[in-house]
Amino acid sequence: MHPDSFADHEERNGRRRIAIVIGTRPEAVKLAPVALALSRSSWADPVLITTGQHGDVVPETLSCFGLRPDIELTVRRGNDSVAELTAGLLSRLDGALRATAAQAVVVQGDTSSALAGAMAGFFAAVPVAHVEAGLRSGDPRSPFPEEAHRKMIAGITDVHLAPTRAARDNLLAEGVAAERIHVTGNTVIDAVVEASRRPTASGNPLLREVEQSGAPLVLVTAHRRENWGEPIRRVSGAVADLSRRYPDITFVVAAHMNPSVRAATEQSLRGIPNVRLTGPIPYGSFARILARSLLTITDSGGIQEEAAAFGVPVLVTRDNTERTEGITSGLARLVGTEESEIVAAVEKEFARENAFPGNAIRAVVPTNPYGDGRAGERCAAACGRLLGIRPR
């Protein structure tokens, strides 16, 4: 929808306009259930604003859920400076919020787009709802800059949509009033289960081969800024070692879209017969591959949660994690980025008796610590209460 038509549209439908700010693929995944729940309501008019932080992959991911952006912004990328990125995002989002006359702003997680969206809402005196609020690692520089972003967003948020009780406790400990916190579950559970059940085949021949093969799979990702350079090279070295030790297992390496990160990941893995260097994977294929994986090796926060939906063990290549529920439940283990530690952790997983029940897609874990698949509905209802509406 063109911004000039928003005022007339509001007069016609009488709904409250909710701006949903989406910058990265994980934000698209985690905000899709919220956008869908709002669109099904009788009172909300969700407006999807993409910032351009992750480029074309965001509209592509939204399309997996039958969604498309209403406003597509672009952001000029320079030298990977977080300050430059955030400043550009803030300026463009300020204009978009004013053009749409948004009555509330929804942001998710801890990206530069989320911080800029919350700031733009605050400066425009528009109430802010923060999806996935309250995650804390306890170290302001790890993950960087995400941990600092979370705390900054918390300071200007009107309603905190905490995915778990542990996240709620973190917010309470920081002085957030209990009535401003809603425990919703994590929207990624809604999204990944829905995407894994969709039968759409990938247009990428390599991904089609992976999905259709009967080989056991291990899914590998690496992208966090604090792991750039040598840590990612060590993770890749561990995968190369493991691929030689386990020639019957296919290692699916979803390298990051950043060219320098991707080069560091793929340098030691090219040409290995049982390694598939897929590059970024469309979300539907990703969900189906994750669902039938033996385990995943990742530094992604989102994948720690998504894997829990299918009971897939996670080896977290970080020194700490804000997703403590996975560690507590035993679904995830911190292994760091030392090559020998990663190899030893994978061997331990493979050695567990009856650890992996075949290659079939697993059922949703009934005691998933991250939620029950209805988080999107709860987030939408909390937005309604924020605006004085009492939806069922």
Rank of each mutant, 00 (worst) to 15 (best):
T100V: 02
T324D: 13
E27I: 09
F356Y: 15
D94Q: 13
T317H: 13
E266M: 12
A167R: 05
S202A: 14
V126G: 00
V235D: 04
N320F: 03
A380C: 03
G376I: 13
V107Q: 00
P391T: 00
S81I: 03
A307W: 11
E179I: 07
D80V: 10
V365N: 15
A129R: 01
L161I: 09
P357H: 05
V188I: 15
G301D: 04
S5V: 10
P273K: 07
T111R: 00
G121M: 07
L161F: 10
V183K: 00
E132C: 06
G203Y: 09
G311H: 11
A195T: 09
E338G: 07
G311P: 13
C379G: 06
R25F: 10
L135W: 05
R318P: 09
R234Y: 06
E341H: 13
H9V: 06
L135M: 09
V316S: 08
G109K: 05
D372F: 00
L31R: 08
K30H: 14
R197C: 12
A351R: 05
E339R: 15
V188A: 15
A35I: 07
H2C: 00
R244F: 12
R16F: 00
F356W: 13
L97R: 00
L48H: 07
V57Q: 15
P140A: 11
T221K: 12
F310Q: 14
A360K: 13
R262C: 09
A44W: 04
A191T: 10
G373Y: 09
E209C: 03
H160V: 01
Q267C: 08
T86G: 05
S260G: 04
T184E: 11
R225N: 09
L315A: 08
V210A: 10
I189M: 11
R198A: 13
L331T: 14
R16A: 06
G175D: 14
R262T: 08
G279M: 13
R262L: 04
V128S: 02
G376D: 03
I71T: 07
R225T: 06
T317I: 13
L172T: 07
E306G: 10
D158A: 01
R136P: 01
S142D: 12
F65E: 02
A381V: 07
R244C: 11
A102N: 01
P143W: 02
I18V: 14
P199F: 07
A99N: 06
L387M: 01
T61W: 03
A178H: 15
I249D: 03
G117I: 05
T24E: 05
V21W: 03
G185V: 04
E132W: 06
A28L: 09
V128A: 05
A263V: 03
V235E: 02
S5L: 15
G95M: 12
R17W: 00
R25K: 13
D248L: 13
I249K: 09
Q53Y: 03
D4I: 09
G66P: 00
P231W: 07
T328K: 14
I181H: 01
V29K: 07
R15A: 01
L269H: 01
D158P: 03
